[in-house]
Design a protein around this nucleic acid. Sequence first.
DNA 1: ATATTTGAGTTGAAGCTTCAAGCAAAATAC
DNA 2: GTATTTTGCTTGAAGCTTCAACTCAAATAT
Lengths: 162, 162
Amino acid sequence: MNRDEPRWLSASELEAWKAFSAMIIKLPAALDAQLRADSGLNQFEYLVLAGLSDAPDRTLRMSDLAVLANGSLSRLSHVVTRLEGQGYVRRERCPGDGRATNAVLTEEGFRKLADSAPGHVEQVRSLVVDPLDPEQLEQLRGICLQVLQAMDPGLSWPPSRH
Amino acid sequence: MNRDEPRWLSASELEAWKAFSAMIIKLPAALDAQLRADSGLNQFEYLVLAGLSDAPDRTLRMSDLAVLANGSLSRLSHVVTRLEGQGYVRRERCPGDGRATNAVLTEEGFRKLADSAPGHVEQVRSLVVDPLDPEQLEQLRGICLQVLQAMDPGLSWPPSRH
DNA sequence: ATATTTGAGTTGAAGCTTCAAGCAAAATAC
DNA sequence: GTATTTTGCTTGAAGCTTCAACTCAAATAT
């Protein structure tokens, strides 16, 4: 399965990688746990509601929403079904393109989000933003952009909105 | 559900957070995808095999292995059952403490890991280590340590080995 | 006009994770 | 020395995600 001599990581690279990999495993779990406990939503559901709440008419096409929430269309479809059952989101056939479906945030969904947001932001603050000084935060932003670009060389980031 | 006025993120904090959150969602997925495609293992299974291969006698107690792989004991138990079925791991009752179970990496499991490791390392390189310059990598290490500490204030990192 | 291909979503099954309950061995209390 | 609690792990069910197959609508080709 393996042909060339691999370029192993140096000691310092390995240190960085170990800290980083531990973090990218644990941080999502910690964020999820807080959301779960405080509002019964997971990260993805939260992103869906948040994405809708920022959109014009609190409405987005499924495909756009999937990209925004960093998930597959299939995953989104299942999640929207759940959120629909809880009354937070409504589906509408897109006028103008009969193939497309619009997801719309309901009033109840908006209230739910408004209830959940402060706790979530507080968690983001306490785990990430506050422990880092402004310089580090800026460094982090640059680092993330480069990693994102390495994963998705075509894509510029953040996605242009005009 | 919400009592105090939340401290929202500033514009620059928000920029950093958005890039960061996109990265911590997408990077694990990208790493998983490569492992899946190249060796049929997911990240967690890989960590289990890798953890065992570094341990004395390629053996670890389930609890220790769970911590090492950043997962719950329950999750590990299921995964070890799977890996056992594929012949990569074997369970042994711990001599000296009848409650404990040792997981042991089989020869076949070791070969599997040896086969998978180069591709995985190459992926880590190409998505994280190589796109960043050494200075950024060092910054990243520091940032991760602080975030890890914020999540788990008791813990020092890396876990002391003396 | 009709046929084919592409695009947008949905669906059900299979797989993995989590959760709560359970079991057995060891440690502790009495 | 027996009863209780704690520790270490396993298990089955429920929940979420992924995967592959499918439907329906729009665009394109013939």
